[in-house]
Design a protein around this nucleic acid. Sequence first.
DNA 1: GATTGACTTTGACGTTGCGTAAAGGTGTAT
DNA 2: ATACACCTTTACGCAACGTCAAAGTCAATC
Lengths: 254, 254
Amino acid sequence: MEYTVQKLANLAGVSARTLRYYDEIDILKPTRINSSGYRIYGQSEVDKLQQILFYRELGVSLDSIKEIVTASSFDGAAALREHREKLLAKRKQLDLLLANVDKTIALTEGRTNMTDKEKFTGFKQKMIDDNEKKYGEEIRQKYSNETIDQSNAKVMNMTEEDYEAVTNIEKQVLETLAQAFENGDPAGELGQKAAELHKKWLMYYWSEYSKEAHAGLAQMYVDDERFKAYYDEKQPGGAEFLRDAIHIYTGMKG
Amino acid sequence: MEYTVQKLANLAGVSARTLRYYDEIDILKPTRINSSGYRIYGQSEVDKLQQILFYRELGVSLDSIKEIVTASSFDGAAALREHREKLLAKRKQLDLLLANVDKTIALTEGRTNMTDKEKFTGFKQKMIDDNEKKYGEEIRQKYSNETIDQSNAKVMNMTEEDYEAVTNIEKQVLETLAQAFENGDPAGELGQKAAELHKKWLMYYWSEYSKEAHAGLAQMYVDDERFKAYYDEKQPGGAEFLRDAIHIYTGMKG
DNA sequence: GATTGACTTTGACGTTGCGTAAAGGTGTAT
DNA sequence: ATACACCTTTACGCAACGTCAAAGTCAATC
């Protein structure tokens, strides 16, 4: 049985454009071109198309499908396992989004506009997510996965009062840091107060405290551009100063 | 505090390009342009960007975000509820994909290439999925959700022998249909045999049988281009013929 | 004051998987 | 002869930017 584009398209439930595109990207070529320039497909193309569409249904990219269907020696199972991991990650991400959306709906219901506090909340969440994306691997290597997940979970479960409190403490950290910076001594009273406030702030995110982790985080504030920018915003060098203060406070060097 | 693109970009953790793009699509304009043509952002822009990024994190499209942040009267909660539904649907789809991938991995493991039977399986699955996408709403209105879900579940749980059997019966349906078509009478012996075989085939997909549903499905074979193409492939008019035969077999008119 | 390096601008193409004309040729039934 | 349904290639459009490229600006350094 031979098919023109439309015939095959109807049979397979795709558009003729799709078949032309598959021809274009060398993923499925017709058996031959007839005298009028028409694409003619045969049985083996039908079979191949079935394969292609099957993988497509699984969400595999056409690029990957190309590898799978062209290289017969290609390890399809391995490709699928890899793809499976991606799907799992995607679903996890979706679950996070859903939790976030649910919470936001709960927060906004009854109030038409968001308060500053809520805006800040979203920002914090974003920072965590961004951080996870950019430095997820590094951080998850330094700390354990549980630590990170627990931190995220703790943020998710914060009450409104918690948010208020954590916002307040964060402000205090920055103010104290600014004062201490003028003073110039990380080991001084103000510097150590800033480190202590920072620990207090931290405990809204972490479920358990260790001096090592605290010192490590402080070092990250300097190494990680994002955090550095945040603490350096008022005074350049603020991140380094805070790190030094925390290292003295914890008695650690990172 | 005033920011240039990069400054604001660093603060917010996005790229400068993103900010220029947001300017371009009128979603976030700078406060002013300085004498050198530089974009200068102020505090209110920072706040607005936070809002934008927050919604973006939730997976809302920039188009929708635009509506949310520009029209203050816009019902953000309703938009989020709608978005939530989309996320749920997406996750459901993901779960289906995952189940499918898992099964495929299990099937292919140990065998390097897929057998024809398996190819067919994938194709059937694809047809079901496609059908669900294109006619999901219609069909789910005609039949109950449970009917559809059970059908899909039944397909998922078929054994290899089932596949063989159902493939065989499908072939028989088509052959008998072809013979009956030559004969010309849907009410004749062959036409009624085709209808009976079709019922037998159907029972591999449905968990319970009703004449009404069978007759309705037969009508759908004519109304639905995809199915029509399938049964019309050998003989144009095949879908209508089968419908008539089934309507006589069930004693229904659809 | 000239150079360097880090910033800024606009413009424009690339990404993914096709949808959707547009402009023209082909096949067949009436 | 004409209509109509098919086929072809070419090419823009979509979302949300990434990534050069070419050219101007700013602050610091030689």
